[in-house]
Design a protein around this nucleic acid. Structure first.
Length: 161
DNA sequence: GCCAACGTTGGC
DNA sequence: GCCAACGTTGGC
């Protein structure tokens, strides 16, 4: 079974990559997803061992900040059941939690965030969802070649031009 | 802060 | 089941 790749979006001001890095064991649950399309991907396709590009939205700059790895496949997202949680969903119940989370572990923070503007100009990434205008899906599939290109851009950044 | 694009809601 | 109105996302 082939390893898959994903891009997870998080608002930098809400949950930056450092928050994951600084979590116990650099591991945390990726919860709060409240979009059915994203939920279905999380629930059905994201598996342990998959690679994840950690993308900062509304960031400074906006772009891919680093990588992490899935350490646990989908499980019920309990933040939907807690009225004190920001992502509380009154329609979610313990019997039917509606929403799922996965667990991820921090892998690497890029020396420099790979900016979205650069991704948009890079050959080979034309079809990457995050580069498309108006794309709001917070869990996106990434191809192996896109993954490789982004990592290459990250390691090239900071070197002399 | 603006506003385009998207998802959801609700009247019919 | 359509679709207009509304709320949210997120780049700029």
């Amino acid at each position: 079974m082939a390893r898959k790749y994903w891009l997870f979006k998080s608002e930098e001001s809400c949950y930056p990559i450092d928050a994951l890095k600084n979590a116990p064991n650099s591991t945390d649950s990726w919860d709060g997803v409240r979009n059915y399309q994203a939920r279905n991907i999380l629930r059905d396709e994201v598996k342990k061992g998959d690679g994840v590009l950690f993308h900062h939205s509304s960031g400074n700059p906006t772009g891919v900040a680093g990588t992490c790895v899935v350490t646990r496949a989908a499980f019920p997202d309990e933040t939907a059941l807690d009225p004190n949680e920001q992502h509380f969903d009154p329609k979610a119940t313990a019997e039917d939690p509606r929403w799922v989370a996965v667990e991820v572990q921090f892998k690497k923070k890029f020396k420099n965030t790979v900016p979205l503007a650069e991704l948009k100009q890079t050959p080979g990434l034309e079809n990457m969802m995050v580069t498309k205008r108006g794309m709001r899906l917070s869990i996106q599939p990434v191809t192996k070649s896109e993954w490789d290109i982004v990592l290459k851009m990250a390691s090239a950044a900071g070197k002399k031009k």
